[in-house]
Design a protein around this nucleic acid. Structure first.
Lengths: 347, 347
DNA sequence: CTGAAAGCGCTTACAG
DNA sequence: CTGAAAGCGCTTACAG
């Protein structure tokens, strides 16, 4: 057998499709067919080519392939999330799905309120000829962006609290169901004056979580009292402020449900300032189950979303990967209430 | 003037270098010279070409350029950091530096202890023909990885607590100086029995921070008592455990300095369990100034590292950007102690 | 200062 | 089932 140079340290130029073709005694087109798993290659030829590829350590050049394909091997992650934990978890999951696939992840933070967003995205996607795009919430809620991607014929998956698009383009986290669990949990503990601190109405997650919460209350025969419904900004400070108001009420709530952990953490601060004990005087429930939930005292009851899984599933919906059998068929995940020490029987 | 088709919505193929050449009445090579800012183009010709490029909205195809250049326009971020906040901040800063440059950021989490790390990195860098690579700590501490990148002739910047490489390849955060500030701060408050909870010795940051801390103590005429020096794992749980031991000592410390905020948060928990008040009974100082520092009660004194700036500076050292005058000349940042309510006069 | 030719490493038609 | 030709959109030599 012809001795084949293996990868020399340093200098050694990487082998090209021409080297493989020559060594295998076939045309480069046949090698190309093997690379692209065309069925029109004799099994014998295919094996011989694969053997040469293995020996030489040949790996196709993604730039050259991309140029010829008129499409790159890059997946874009376009995010605008104030919560780094969300982004990094999604990113990690996406990379889990892409590992060993030959695709790479290009990250792109954006300002979803920028008037230039659509122009920037068009330029980004066209210029890089992106293979696919993942849109976590709240960027996923931008209908114009989704329309642009369809126009540019770029596959995408939107990650969101509720179905906003066709099933193949959507990973749904059913945020409302988690909020309903929280409502039932508090109702089961005997609470009747349950307050809500929601996020900005510009976040669909806030709308869905609130809706789910109210439905959960309704199941238990309760309703959300108008004076107990506060609107926060998904920030710690807004949680402090809203809870401050709630705790100043004559008939103050015995439980507070916050639509994210940042605001719930603010409730801890406000409770301490108001001289209220958690959970003896007031129960607190958050949403996200962020790392801080178990670092606070008492550890916080919160609704968990499988963020990393969500990223992975979105990746599996978009990226072919030889390490996997086939693409993901499940397009949804379920939130899960995690009960800890911050919620207890109503006083 | 010849009417030029502007970007049609939808179909309209992007213009290529040939279109620009034809419309400008020059060869494509001349257009190429303009793109690459060659000085060998008559000013008049250059302006004419630039005008056509503007009118047509022409942008060079990075894949085609990369193929011809034998080098891509991708910058790699290779990280293995247990702290998402670090990664996301560095990432954000890097992207700040790269905005509008035409380069894109490809992210790559790795396990720095994997035996396959070097092979994986060789494959990654060679295959993608990376333009440059950024190595945050602790990946930056891997000498073999740095040597590999030099061998592959890929520019890189290592972000680390101390100079580990030539100045052009290093962004130094002088972690020790921040720890020294913490030591002086506690000494100034009259503490003499000051404990230390360090991180794993496999992290250079832990070694440097500890060294700086001991130097700071020495300046104040203090030394670190052996029974007050604990080794943690940079995790919350290890902070709880180490502080638990410290608080059980007969002569317990009046102050605890932790080499990261995670462990310092653990000290809060251990203090509560031991019935100790912060800062009345014990002062606590952390490192990182993570978001949690201001969500704990009392707000935590901590050493801040400008993580986003560090990412930006690393990016500026590597990526040419027309939006900037020139590359960064500063290759270091300084940590800064942020004093809050968790540190007070010794009891 | 400018251009025609060849090439980067692949794939798409088109033949056979 | 396999291959020779042309092309993807750029840049590198090489001329002039």
């Amino acid at each position: 057998m012809t001795p084949v140079a293996t990868r020399e340290p340093g200098a050694a130029k990487r082998h090209t499709i021409n080297d493989v073709a020559r060594l295998a005694g076939v045309s480069k087109k046949t090698v190309s067919r093997v690379i692209n798993e065309s069925p029109f290659v004799k099994e014998e030829t295919r094996k011989a080519v694969l053997e040469i590829m293995r020996e030489t350590g040949y790996v196709p050049d993604p730039q050259a392939r991309g140029l010829a394909f008129r499409r790159s091997f890059l997946v874009g992650l376009i995010y605008d999330n104030p919560n780094p934990q969300h982004t990094i978890s999604h990113q990690q999951g996406l990379l889990d799905a892409m590992a060993g696939s030959g695709f790479e992840l290009v990250v792109r933070p954006v300002d979803r309120n920028s008037p230039k967003l659509l122009d920037d995205m068009r330029d980004f996607v066209e210029r890089q000829k992106l293979f696919a795009v993942v849109l976590p919430s709240p960027v996923s809620e931008d209908e114009k962006l989704a329309a642009l991607l369809r126009e540019l014929d770029v596959p995408y998956v939107r990650i969101g609290s509720v179905a906003l698009d066709e099933p193949d383009r959507m990973l749904v986290s059913h945020d409302g169901r988690g909020a309903a669990q929280a409502a039932r949990h508090l109702a089961d503990l005997g609470h009747t004056r349950i307050a809500l601190i929601s996020g900005p109405p510009t976040f669909r997650s806030s709308i869905e979580r609130r809706k789910g919460f109210e439905e959960g209350l309704a199941e238990a025969g309760l309703t959300l009292a108008p004076d107990l419904a506060k609107i926060g900004a998904y920030t710690y400070e807004s949680g402090v402020a809203a809870a401050h108001d709630l705790f100043a009420l004559e008939a103050r709530p015995t439980a507070v449900f916050c639509l994210n952990d940042e605001m719930a953490t603010g409730v801890y601060t406000a409770a301490r300032e108001a001289g209220l004990r958690i959970p003896e005087d007031v129960s607190v429930v958050g949403y996200d189950d962020a790392p801080i939930a178990v670092r606070l005292w008492p550890p916080m009851t919160s609704v968990r979303l499988p963020l990393r899984d969500m990223g992975r599933m979105a990746g599996e919906m978009l990226v072919p990967n030889a390490l996997r059998e086939k693409r993901a068929d499940a397009h949804e995940v379920q939130p899960q209430l995690v009960v800890r020490g911050s919620s207890a029987k109503a006083p």
